[in-house]
Design a binder for these strands. Sequence first.
DNA 1: TTTTATCTGTGAAATATATCACAGATATTG
DNA 2: CAATATCTGTGATATATTTCACAGATAAAA
Lengths: 195, 195
Amino acid sequence: MEELEGNGASSVSSNEIGEKIWVGSHSVRKDISYIGEIGTVGSGYEIAKLKKHIGEKLGLNVERKACVVGLGKLGTAILQNEKLFSNNFKIVAGFDSSINKIETLVTHIPVYPAYDLADIIRKQGIELAVITVPGHASRDIIDRLVEGGIRGIVNFSSVPLHATYKEKVYVSNFDIAGEFRFLSALFTMEQQHHG
Amino acid sequence: MEELEGNGASSVSSNEIGEKIWVGSHSVRKDISYIGEIGTVGSGYEIAKLKKHIGEKLGLNVERKACVVGLGKLGTAILQNEKLFSNNFKIVAGFDSSINKIETLVTHIPVYPAYDLADIIRKQGIELAVITVPGHASRDIIDRLVEGGIRGIVNFSSVPLHATYKEKVYVSNFDIAGEFRFLSALFTMEQQHHG
DNA sequence: TTTTATCTGTGAAATATATCACAGATATTG
DNA sequence: CAATATCTGTGATATATTTCACAGATAAAA
């Protein structure tokens, strides 16, 4: 929608949205209809109105604080790369278990030792975390994040985490090797079907 | 399964697998049944046999070459982090459009200018790519990857790519900001339902 | 104003996915 | 060896998701 606004458009049809995101116009309309009756028959959806409604429904209109746990190469790259985030998310802290790493890392974002995790998350009201620690450490980290009251976690460790609803934490696992396996499974099975 | 093997087990039941990955035993059995009749009633699945069959079906028993396109902080971190990959995937090349970056980057993996992309992918038989270029450049990059004959792409740029089946390329999009939006939508909607 | 084109919202139908339940086979125990 | 416990593979059922089709409303054109 922001792309279309940039082109000077003020309204958009389900068809146009569908083409942008490679989804049928039916599905676009059906999904939007769960939020409410937002469109205008004949001319489509007013972009500003649609953005507002989606934002309210999904909680995207408020700024949320996030942190990075594990400051290896990957963690540091994420910590320092503000372009990775849209404007309502702000990385406000980094954590690592190595004091040495914390003292030597050059960055304008404050970094803390891992044992302060729960405390700082609670005090600063941090809601989201990206974790890039080695697999064996991730279970311990998630416990401390939950203790601090974190709400969502993006997990880059190779050990998938399954936070329960009871814990009130949602986890999104991402594993590059897993994606590679998935992709190679797709094209391997394609070949098996075609001979 | 490798974890269980490490503990000395040689066979595993659908129940045990299900507990490990938080899935019902029914689903585990049903999924495995699509590959064939691999289990033994009464004692479960022989781990070595199950690994072999899954590997063959999904093409995980062969080594596959991969590359990283875009050597900013994130791309460099991925290029240099071999722990991110399981043993059948090997990063054999990095690419960037900045000659300066290519000349100054210190790594034991060969790096090349982006204009050599298609050529090197073809010559070296690279099947997988991770792309971490800025959004606006990604469409051009994917064209060159396809030209070189790439089979699968993990896309970290914020612009989602949709490779068609016709192009014989599969794409897995990953966008950290998108995951944050998804997670905050989940807990926001949870709050809306509970009052 | 009248006609024609455009577009939403949504029941209904079609697909796909997940779950269940159990027959029948194997392993284990006493 | 008999009795009991364990476990797979799968048809059947249930649930979820996607797609379709169109009534009815608005916008644009003539």
